[in-house]
Write a protein that binds this DNA or RNA. Sequence first.
DNA 1: AATGAATGAGAATTCATTCAT
DNA 2: TATGAATGAATTCTCATTCAT
Lengths: 214, 214, 214, 214
Amino acid sequence: MPRTKEENERIRQAAKEKIHAAAMTLFIQKGYHATSIDDVAKQANISKGLLYNYYKGKEELLAVMVQLRIEEVRAVMETAASLANPMDQLCYIVNGAIDHVHRNPAVYRFYLNLQTQPENDHVLAAYSEQLNQESSRQFEVQCQMFERLGAKEPKLRSLSFSAALHGTMQMMTMYTKGFPVEQMKQQMISEYCALSHETDRGSHSRKDSPSKAP
Amino acid sequence: MPRTKEENERIRQAAKEKIHAAAMTLFIQKGYHATSIDDVAKQANISKGLLYNYYKGKEELLAVMVQLRIEEVRAVMETAASLANPMDQLCYIVNGAIDHVHRNPAVYRFYLNLQTQPENDHVLAAYSEQLNQESSRQFEVQCQMFERLGAKEPKLRSLSFSAALHGTMQMMTMYTKGFPVEQMKQQMISEYCALSHETDRGSHSRKDSPSKAP
Amino acid sequence: MPRTKEENERIRQAAKEKIHAAAMTLFIQKGYHATSIDDVAKQANISKGLLYNYYKGKEELLAVMVQLRIEEVRAVMETAASLANPMDQLCYIVNGAIDHVHRNPAVYRFYLNLQTQPENDHVLAAYSEQLNQESSRQFEVQCQMFERLGAKEPKLRSLSFSAALHGTMQMMTMYTKGFPVEQMKQQMISEYCALSHETDRGSHSRKDSPSKAP
Amino acid sequence: MPRTKEENERIRQAAKEKIHAAAMTLFIQKGYHATSIDDVAKQANISKGLLYNYYKGKEELLAVMVQLRIEEVRAVMETAASLANPMDQLCYIVNGAIDHVHRNPAVYRFYLNLQTQPENDHVLAAYSEQLNQESSRQFEVQCQMFERLGAKEPKLRSLSFSAALHGTMQMMTMYTKGFPVEQMKQQMISEYCALSHETDRGSHSRKDSPSKAP
DNA sequence: AATGAATGAGAATTCATTCAT
DNA sequence: TATGAATGAATTCTCATTCAT
């Protein structure tokens, strides 16, 4: 007697999940190029053939990872956007991003690595591009937050915020031990997530520093 | 008649230089993995065999690039360190770094990619590590600059500066067109390269933001 | 309640037939090598597993096709042989063969392809051989027809007839459109299926053409 | 010291020839599908890698064979066409074709096998098509020969001739031993390569046999 | 009888590296 | 010094076949 449709579906999903998890582990650990399909199959405890039953090839495994990442990031932004006021929203972003990298630096490292792939690497460029596009989309949302916050030049402010945030995360992946996570978070928050901030500093600001213009 | 020793040496150096330039061009353009030795030899207009005469293999070509990068960065830091006052020093760093990325985003992108290589990629990890170590060294020097500047928490300040700087450069490699380079530079400068800055802002700082504590 | 023996058998036969038809369609369409077991199962709307329940493997599907072909050809020859006079017999063969190819060139093409399989292809050679043997058997029967027809050298005449017939069919599979089917048929018939023929032409025949010697 | 350009070229040509010969031997012996690249390399006594240095893949080896075949066939037709009178031309074709198959039945068998490849086999169809096109081209030339010979319906006559010739060759590949080669050749010649032929037989021809109509 | 998940052997292809010249 | 022919290990991918359910 054959298995029921549902049971098969369950088995399929479980296998796909197992493979995907194995790929993710290895890609993050050893990198995309350094991981062979054989490695993935072995890690997932299945045969190469089965892997190909579920995924078209190595590239599709990466595609799935990228897709999931995009959804993950989008979810964070949506949660942030749903918060009542822009201060909380930005705080949420800072905390979420930094905590996430803190818990799992290799993951951020992996995606940053992917995003910095040379544009002419025909295998990876597409995924790099996808991640970049998602970043752009987030950036738009962020700009609105700074607008609501009353920033004089919300775009510039948002860019500056993103730079500081990603720079911080980048550092975290490189100097894992002893990184003053909390302090950096606090600084980001006091710098960017305070309503009064710009107004306060406005009185001292200089003409050539538009985002902090008086 | 045979060439003189000097001439031979000159020829060797020229050849090595040609090869190295070819490798650099291609690695940056297509990435390390996507570039084959054949590609490099062709780009350098020499034979594969000759390439192996000068370099032990593909990896050594990368090693040379990393070495040169380290020297380049070190030179910038030394020049900066030689300037009279910390404000100028930091200004010099900001301008140098950002202008450099602005002129050639792919180069920064390449090295950032290398630096974010997974730690278990046995081929690339060593070079990634080297770059990271050099960054650490720079960081020490930077800390001294902030110390001389009178920063209350020079280490934290330096870290924050580095984060902002690298974050900015990272963004530049991803959104090349229309990036407000000058504005971002000005902001970095007004934020970090002013003596009065911390003092000024000290009066508004909050307890939970240690780096800006009075 | 369980099915009766007969019903079971009926189901089995129906399934086998379905599978075999699917295989035949695909083999003829795409060729034996280019058709996968998966393709066949899908075309037959059954599972791979069931296919293996009925047939030992891909090769057996081919064996069945070959067997059926042999029976088909044999039936034609038997019908022909049952006709009253050799003229009708040969006419029947010509008409039957050419019409069949005309209606379905791909089928003849397929079997011709199989028959021209290199002898050392261990998978297909056996089937190629079987078809050839059947051809030999037919040839014997044909020879008798030419004998009854009064041909001077029945074997040679039969060979010539077979060559002309198979040559015509071969051409038909290669130039489907615009092939002068009826004219070719008529020519074959007037050349080979007339009692008077050889006698008639005998008067002009030359010494070096033994089969047409008076 | 490197080899001279010429020497390299010689080496390259020799290797290509060796590979091509090996491929040809095996393809003819075991068939295209049953021959692996490994087989070819082994037969040629070289490494797989070298094979790929010279040929893009298995398919290109086939392409070369097809190309050579086309040239070979074309050369025969050109020589034939250069003969003084159509009788000699057709004689030359008959003798050339049949002798060739007689000496090497497997070769004709191979190309016939290729030409009868199912049209939907995407790998082989293109080559099958090429051979067919070349056959068409030859057919045109042949028609002119029959025209010069004064045939009433040169096209039909040419088709009939081709059918008889290819049919004969087909038979030869299937019943190698004891095939009455010379007799068949003589018959073809007396049937098709005689000026008087059609006129002679014209008196007996029947209405329904257009190519032999008076 | 029926299913399709799972296997693994085998095929094609790439490419860093070596070596004879 | 300089060349490029030659190698073979590593990798991706396919598919006939098995087997638990």
